[in-house]
Design a binder for these strands. Structure first.
Lengths: 176, 176
DNA sequence: CAGCGTAGGTTCATTCATTGAACTCAAATC
DNA sequence: GATTTGAGTTCAATGAATGAACCTACGCTG
């Protein structure tokens, strides 16, 4: 988001946050990173966005310190994009967006259910566990498919995401 | 956000939420509504966005049921835009964005401080009161200027917002 | 009552971002 | 040697954002 056109005039931490994660597709890339997606081609296949936009977003998120690019093999050279601590701190934002979307956008069924892995209780509005009354870190969140989800999606990433899984757990582990 | 270019392929409540509030400027309009701004000209002066964009956003938010347009005088006819219950439910999203922006975007000082009006305690990350351990509804949130804020802003709306005030309280009440 | 001011918009040309398709490049595999 | 695969970059066409100017209905002032 560039100059004059950016939110620079805004003395506001919300505006600053939106400078980083407010562009089109950006938060969906971050969401996918929470789902365990780490590779360019998996983001591409799952999000269905233009390659050029994905490359731009990944670079911007890396520069902002939300994602870290790391080499996972040398020959051929391949990199993966992993959430940093700063990126993991975005979880409450995604959680509150998801809660609001389910409750207030017409026709949104429960598509995914998030539970506290330790006790199986469904998370509250802020991502806390009502039973244990603690904030649940994303590592301890279990994601389960909800009723509204297509049971036979065409792309392999969506198919892998139909299985219950921990947030942040790399997708490679249980690829079909 | 139109077709093919929208997030329709995404079976995801986050994507649905972003369809409504994910466009440029939209969340800042909503933020201003929480600050008590209700009139076209006040949004315009405070946000500094093009009039055409403001008109488009206000209409979209009204259609989505986030804002309600209501006539507050008949001659000349004047309308104001007020948050609906669905709009007020966006508060946790704004709160978590603000917390993340302050903590993780370089150089962001505390610009505004939010406290539980009943007890004066500063809100926690999710907008809860650590002292009373309850979620604080925006009506009960007091907003105070932080250190990083310009003490002599040029536009009258920013000047009015330097005073401590309740969220959602109409700005007209204490206009300078 | 003529002229000016004001709130709340539209319209318009220019600039900028997004899209979708095609192209590149290096390494691995057939 | 030919093909495939991952990870990009380049490019023309489309769509959205910007900033300025214009419009309209009403109220106010002299």
């Amino acid at each position: 988001m560039a100059l004059g056109k950016d939110y620079v005039a805004q003395e506001c931490s919300i505006a600053r946050a939106l400078e980083v994660i407010g562009e089109r597709w950006t938060l969906l890339v971050v969401r996918d990173a929470f789902y365990g997606i780490r590779r360019y081609s998996d983001f591409l296949g799952h999000l269905g966005l233009p390659r050029a936009v994905l490359a731009t977003r990944l670079q911007a998120l890396e520069r902002a310190g939300v994602l870290e690019k790391r080499r996972y093999q040398d020959s051929p050279p391949r990199d993966e994009y992993v959430l940093t601590d700063s990126g993991i701190a975005l979880w409450p934002i995604l959680r509150s967006l998801s809660v609001w979307g389910t409750a207030h956008v017409a026709g949104t069924k429960r598509l995914r259910v998030f539970t506290h892995a330790d006790c199986g209780t469904e998370l509250g509005s802020y991502g806390e566990c009502p039973a244990c009354s603690t904030a649940v870190p994303p590592q301890d969140v279990e994601m389960l498919p909800g009723e509204g989800l297509d049971p036979e999606p065409s792309d392999p990433v969506s198919r892998a995401l139909l299985r219950p899984r921990r947030l942040l757990q790399p997708l490679e582990a249980d690829r079909v």
